[in-house]
Design a protein around this nucleic acid. Structure first.
Length: 213
DNA sequence: ACTAGGATGCCCT
DNA sequence: GGGCATCCTAGTA
């Protein structure tokens, strides 16, 4: 039987828990992105947890900087970073203020406003690829550094909100090492995804880049 | 199917 | 100046 997703925004308390508890609980939740052209909605299918200052894979590992300062603030806010010279990736800050935990939103299914995302995702060969990967997700939702620090608990008129949705049953949650994270940061199974979901991105191990000439 | 390499700019040492 | 929580295209098969 089909259960309609719950459209109540998640309260700040939801994010004020250890990041490893919040991350799997985000699967199946609905991210609403209000754009000038209309709303886009995405059902989360893949995330990764970043623990903060004690985590070598985290941007917070070397302490607070201008770029990552939102991670050190209160939970329920968005941390957006720019990488590889052209992409943005989006995180939700979790845990108590000062802990710098965050969940990277890696993939999802566009459930509303797909026509608005296709204009920005011209290389997508089908709708499953619209948000299959963290930079693709941010591109589809038109998320960049302007949204760094946005509050996802401020209500459904805000630029970004997370709704209760229909959380993925724990028996359907899969875990594995984080994509693109090497060294000591790769030992933990801190990537979470929904089993057998075609919008989940392929795993890629970390590979050091060779220097260009 | 899978692999390799280039794109491109900001952050931090 | 090295590295980056990535994506895309072209190549081989």
């Amino acid at each position: 039987m089909i259960v309609a997703p719950d459209r109540t925004p998640l309260p700040r308390d939801f994010f004020d828990r250890p990041v490893l508890e919040v991350a799997p609980d985000l699967l199946g939740r609905i991210l609403v992105r209000n754009t000038p052209d209309g709303p886009i909605e995405l059902r989360l299918t893949e995330v990764e947890a970043y623990e903060g200052e004690a985590d070598p894979g985290s941007h917070a590992y070397r302490g607070r900087t201008a770029r990552n300062s939102v991670m050190f603030g209160p939970p329920g806010y968005v941390y957006v970073y720019f990488t590889y010279g052209m992409w943005h990736c989006m995180n939700l800050v979790c845990g108590p203020e000062g802990k710098a935990g965050a969940v990277l939103l890696r993939a999802g299914e566009i459930t509303e406003g797909a026509e608005l995302t296709r204009e920005r995702r011209l290389s997508a060969r089908n709708d499953k690829e619209l948000a299959k990967g963290p930079a693709r997700l941010a591109t589809a939702l038109d998320v960049d550094r302007r949204l760094d620090g946005a509050d996802v608990c401020a209500g459904t008129d805000a630029p970004l909100t997370v709704l209760t949705g229909a959380p993925t049953d724990p028996s359907q949650v899969r875990t594995g090492p984080r994509t693109g994270v090497g060294g000591e940061g790769s030992v933990h199974p801190w990537r979470f995804w929904t089993a057998n979901d075609p919008t989940v991105s392929p795993y890629r191990a970390h590979s050091p880049r060779r220097r260009r000439t």
